[in-house]
Amino acid sequence: MPADVQADALPGSIADDFNTRGRDWYVDRAVSVGVFVGGVSAIIFIIGIFIFVTREGLGFALGTLDLKEFFTSMNWRPTSERNPTYGILALMAGTASVTGLAMLVAVPFSLGAAIYIAEFASGRMRESLKVLVELLAAIPSVVWGFIGMSIMNPLIIDMFDVPVGLSVLNAGVILGLMAAPIMTTIAEDALKAVPDAYREAAEAMGATRWQVVFKVVLPAAKNGLMAAVLLGVGRGFGETMAVLMASGHAINIPTSPFDSVRALTATIAAELGDTARGSDHYGVLFTLGIFLFVVTFVINLTADIVVKGVGKKQ
């Protein structure tokens, strides 16, 4: 932009800047191309990843793989030399149980935090809480996994007198703490999006602060809060490293929170590196990838539709 406001800059010279391909013209072009590439890059990457994962896995999934066994058997023995079996029932149960427990931990914490930050806290308190919550989201997942392995594991053994502390409980709590900050941030945005006029109207009717929050703000922000929870579920579902370290990585359908389990993502992480390209094991791991991709896609899409629902009603 020719933002020249010096005394000698005449309107004519501004027009010249537009007509001649001077330095500014190139800068302008470069920036607009850069912004455009940045804007569409997400689409390019997602399509690229989808094509790659599908190309590596789909042939095997539709050809060699027995899909019925895949979804209904719990025998995951991909490296057996006599009779390799690829059943992911136990892995799905592992992911579902860990994610479910994580939501039990994360939903009350994150909704409580969001309500406090958005409705009750003010000034310094609110700003520092927001920064702290964002800081919590920035802790790398391997650090969480390390906490699960070296702090939570002996703690759970001591507290509950169980043989091993790497379990659904351990991974669920860790994952809940990891998902909570993101859910808090999104839930807080949803609460902030409720117009102040609603609050003022309720207060004018003589409602207490608690009644305002509970009877007016929460119902109005319902869809946004639901989206926050669904994104938390997606986060929990896709998390790998922390779950690999804290869950015990055992093929097992859990019957109590103290059982070790294995997650779908952790299985890919643990096994893909050592697998020969193009082998059946390689194919089945990519099939797992397609499955995960589809499930997270559905979760995110649902979250998106739920949020859009807000706009339509109002």
Partner: peptide, 11 residues
Amino acid sequence: SEFKLGSRDMH
């Protein structure tokens, strides 16, 4: 024999 499932498989 094969391995019994349910062992904690460490990396």
